[in-house]
């Protein structure tokens, strides 16, 4: 197979990635109010990384993002567990959430909500899991 350059894609990807990641972060934070949430946000982020993988290759991306995705999964789980188990410290049932509303400019209504932290755990797990799967299979091929 002849080598081809990928100049157009590689150039465009820089902007597009920004878009996609922004969107995924948005969709993650907005989850409590609009459709979305940690799960779908995580998948979108993973999508962005996949786009990177397609454009470049596993090695390059590893240099770019030196993340062990299995550890990321574990961290995500720790986040979720930690948030839920935090309520044990206050002697209320497991997973009890607390919240307070904050209005931020630009992003609109954002609540400081322990549920968001929980959702962040979900987010990390989903990114970690999806990337583990894709990377593992990709490396095997």
């Amino acid at each position: 197979m002849r080598k081809t350059n990928n100049l157009i894609l590689e150039t465009a990807i820089k902007v597009l990635l920004f878009f996609i990641v922004l969107y995924s972060v948005y969709i993650f934070t907005a989850g409590h109010y609009y459709p979305g949430g940690g799960f779908i946000g995580g998948l979108m982020t993973a999508g962005a990384i996949v786009l990177l993988l397609i454009t470049y290759d596993i090695k390059t991306v590893e240099e770019l993002l030196p993340v062990n995705y299995r550890i990321l999964t574990a961290i995500g789980l720790l986040f979720a567990i930690g948030t839920s188990a935090g309520s044990l410290l206050f002697n209320v049932p497991f997973l009890t959430h607390a919240f307070g509303d904050v209005h931020l400019p630009l992003l609109g209504e954002l609540s400081l909500h322990t549920a968001t932290l929980f959702d962040l755990g979900v987010y990390f797990v989903v990114v970690g899991v999806t990337m583990t799967i894709i990377q593992t299979i990709g490396e095997d091929e």
Binding site: I71, A74, I81, N91
Partner: peptide, 24 residues
């Protein structure tokens, strides 16, 4: 209402996660 009964679920879960870090 007691958080005690979640421990048999929580402890292995937490351990499982910790063990992911320790895999080598």
């Amino acid at each position: 209402m007691t958080n005690l009964i979640i421990l048999p679920i929580l402890i292995p879960l937490f351990t499982g996660v910790i063990l992911i870090f320790l895999n080598k």
